[in-house]
C-alpha cells in the first residue's frame, strides 16, 4: 500500500498518513512509525530523476566512493539531495546485487554497472 502511494505520488504525503491509518484501522502513530522506519519511503517529492548510487563494499572496492563524491561535488549536493532545478535526486543505496559488475547504480529504476567517474557523471548530467 505504501509502495503504491509512493509510486503514485513519488512520495508519501503527510496528509496521506491519517487516511492510510483509517483504511487499515491503525493509529496515525503506527503508520508514521512504519513510514519513517523504511528509507525507501520519501516524505517529500524527489527530483524528476532519481539516481541511486551503491555505496556498499563491493562497489567501494572498485572505487565507487570517490566517483560518487566527485559527482556530488559537481552537483553541489549531499546524499539525498535534489538539484535546485528539481531535475535529479542523488540517493545512496546499499547493494543492488550487481557486485560482480561494480560499481553500479540505478537511474529511475534502470540498472547501470561498471561505472567510472566519467560515466557516472554523464549518467547524472544527461538525465533530462
Amino acid at each position: 500500500m505504501l509502495h503504491a502511494i509512493q509510486e503514485e505520488f513519488g512520495y508519501i504525503p503527510r496528509e496521506a498518513e491519517p487516511v492510510i491509518a483509517e483504511a487499515l484501522n491503525l493509529s496515525r502513530a503506527e503508520v508514521h512509525g512504519v513510514i519513517t522506519f523504511y528509507h525507501d519511503f520519501r516524505r517529500e517529492p524527489a527530483g524528476r530523476h532519481v539516481l541511486k548510487i551503491c555505496r556498499a563494499e563491493a562497489c567501494q572496492s572498485m572505487g565507487s566512493e570517490a566517483n560518487a563524491h566527485r559527482l556530488l561535488e559537481r552537483l553541489g549536493l549531499d546524499w539525498g539531495g535534489t538539484t535546485a532545478d528539481g531535475r535529479i535526486t542523488i540517493e545512496a543505496v546499499y547493494c543492488l546485487g550487481l557486485c560482480a559488475t561494480a560499481p553500479s547504480a540505478l537511474l529511475d529504476g534502470e540498472p547501470v554497472g561498471r561505472l567510472d567517474a566519467a560515466s557516472l557523471e554523464s549518467l547524472a548530467m544527461e538525465a533530462a
Partner: peptide, 8 residues
C-alpha cells in the same frame, strides 16, 4: 532480502 554486499 539479500542485502549483503557481494551477494547475488
Amino acid at each position: 532480502d539479500e542485502g549483503d554486499s557481494g551477494t547475488f
